[in-house]
């Protein structure tokens, strides 16, 4: 059964429909990249998946035990965070909030989860560091650890490599692949970078007012859309 299934979904932004007739699904363990130009509706789709924005038509169905608030979300970084006084530990731990309900304090199990996720991402020794003192790549790892704290099944990453240098970007992509492979967590990534998307993802969703392509990365490479966007040198 699919974790998320979009059936004839239309989404809009400030009264204008950006994408219509959206049909796709995300299965456990998938690695889906959503690509498309600016304004093609990628970010709006992410907000709809998270329930921050209602859809104009169609429906988004959650299955396989996934609740909407159990998506591990990695948002784009905000200005507020640039000088925010918070320790890495505090930030990561806040990912456990969705399992707390109204209970005010974290339990020992929550804290252990936070340390485990920091361990996985290799930031355990940064726990006491201040978030604002970290490099761009370290910050993304912290926010990824927080996202992992919030989910067991699905990560949703919104342009996670924006502003990272090429080496850190490659490391980050490999990290995501490893998490996807080792723990079976499905990954949905919004990206500008079509070449890396095809390299790492199992599935591609290409948006431009409608769905230009949805299918496996392998098929995308061979498709007309894929060949156009990946550049002439890949035409074979």
């Amino acid at each position: 059964m699919a974790l998320i299934k979009c059936e004839n979904v239309s989404i809009g932004y400030e009264g204008q429909t950006v994408v219509r007739d959206l049909n796709f699904q995300i299965n456990p363990g998938d690695y889906l990249c959503i690509v498309g130009e600016n304004g093609s509706g990628k970010s709006t789709l992410v907000k709809s998946l998270l329930g921050l924005k209602s859809v104009e038509g169609g429906r988004i169905v959650f299955g396989d035990g996934l609740k909407q608030n159990e998506i591990g979300y990695l948002p784009q970084q905000t200005d507020v965070q640039k000088d925010f006084p918070a320790s890495v530990y505090e930030v990561v731990l806040s990912g456990r909030l969705n399992s707390r309900g109204l209970k005010p304090f974290y339990t020992a199990a929550d804290k252990q989860q936070a340390y485990e996720k920091m361990e996985i991402l290799g930031i355990r020794d940064l726990a006491k560091q201040c978030f604002r003192d970290l490099s761009g790549g370290q910050r993304q790892r912290v926010l990824l650890a927080r996202a992992l704290c919030a989910t067991k099944t699905l990560l949703l990453l919104d342009e996670p490599v924006t502003g990272l240098d090429p080496i850190v970007t490659a490391e980050f992509y490999q990290l995501i692949s490893r998490i996807n492979r080792d723990s079976g967590i499905a990954v949905v990534m919004v990206s500008h970078d079509i070449e890396s998307a095809v390299e790492y993802a199992s599935h591609i969703l290409h948006l431009q007012e409608k769905v230009l392509f949805f299918g496996t990365a392998e098929d995308y490479r061979r498709s007309r859309v894929g060949r156009t966007f990946l550049g002439g040198d890949r035409n074979d």
């Binding site: 998270l50 608030n69 979300y73 948002p75 965070q81 918070a86 505090e90 806040s94 990912g95």
Partner: peptide
Amino acid sequence: FAITFDETFARATG
């Protein structure tokens, strides 16, 4: 703390 640090994430997690 959560809504001060990152309101979008906080809302996404309910």
